[in-house]
Design a protein around this nucleic acid. Structure first.
Lengths: 199, 199
DNA sequence: TTTGTTCTACCGGTTTACCGTGATATTTCA
DNA sequence: TGAAATATCACGGTAAACCGGTAGAACAAA
């Protein structure tokens, strides 16, 4: 399933060489859900559009209701944090769109055989940095709220007024945020959070 | 030209219906440059990978040496600022990858007829906001250098030491940066710069 | 009910950021 | 070669950020 007609076409023509596969393509999540309710689906190639995070949630939905269905993410995004986010939602594999045909077919076969499948480049990314930045700091609602306000340029006293709490409280949250991200100051933190797609 | 085999396949199968077109595909810029030096190229569909900005430069190169060649950008990026950056480099049109087949074909025909061609969604994006954020602030080398350091969490005295200049100088640059972006403080500026893909 | 998490709040202190208003080199390019 | 643009440095002041430590109240889950 992909919302890009071009990519759908390309995938189809790549995969049609394998005659053991029966292929259906969808551009909308609802249409696919209708389909899977009435059919057995072995494998889903799911395009990850990260802007809104809908791909993540969709993966979670599929794995929750049809855990036997293999889900492989396809994306241009080559960021570590994104890949892990997707895997944490139950995905069976992750492929970058610049992978070549054979690579993609191999990954699909591996995934169908119960393995966790990555394209070569993804493999490298996963192995690149050790376990340091592996975990994305988890923010509470309040922290997200405050971080958003900070990233918009609001100062501590301003945010305190907006949220009807003491400036001291905001300061405490700030310090907790800096600690969680191991950032030197809010400027660095905002850059990191933006890279992690948290803002 | 695209570095995604899948997308290349898709485009080819979409465009092959039009028999008046002769189609070649390239995944590397050099290979294409070799080709265009020995052949007349009417139209180039150029994938914009914005991470490194190479697509932008490539467009500029083509239009500089072969101004008659029509260049259309293809991208997933739907951001205003990016589209304008590309058009400022001489592009004849801009298409999002989620455009459907007919839309793409129409754009190509329009572009070949001398029009500036946008896919529907791009059109909407261009018309969405008035001319306020149309211009991306232009930064000097020094300013980029300092902004990068700031976004990495370095303070004014630290940066001054790194660049062997007075802290006062760094402060001046900071104030110029804030003015150029009309930002309240550096935190907001870093967020804006990140959104504009300047960092 | 107890443990754990989150949200709240405070003190005292140092450092950094930001503002207004200047000025003088250095480089770039027409 | 001269006008722009860019880079450099400065004073004096206010506001905000950051640091270390502390701790009660609200809430949810075990």
């Amino acid at each position: 399933m992909d919302d890009h007609p071009m990519i759908l076409e390309g995938l189809k023509s790549l995969l049609q060489s394998d005659t053991t596969l029966e292929i259906f393509t969808f551009t909308k999540g609802e249409a696919f859900l209708d389909f899977i309710r009435g059919n057995t689906v072995d494998l889903v190639l799911l395009d990850i559009v990260l802007n809104d995070g809908s791909g993540l949630n969709f993966c979670k939905t599929i794995k929750k209701n049809w855990p036997k269905t293999v889900v492989i993410g396809i994306s241009n995004q080559a960021e570590r944090s994104i890949i892990f986010q997707f895997l944490q939602n139950g995905a069976n594999g992750y492929i970058l769109k610049n992978a070549d045909a054979q690579e993609i077919i191999n990954c699909i076969q591996d995934a169908l055989n119960g393995k966790v499948a990555f394209s070569n480049e993804v493999q490298q990314i996963i192995l690149s940095q050790p376990h340091d930045a592996l975990a994305i700091p988890k923010l509470t609602k309040r922290e997200k709220q405050i971080l958003t306000a900070i990233s918009s340029g609001y100062t501590t006293p301003q945010i305190a007024e907006m949220l009807f709490v003491s400036p001291m409280t905001i300061e405490t949250h700030r310090r907790n945020l800096l600690q969680k991200f191991k950032a030197k100051n809010m400027i660095e933190l905002v850059r990191i959070a933006t890279e992690y797609k948290l803002l």
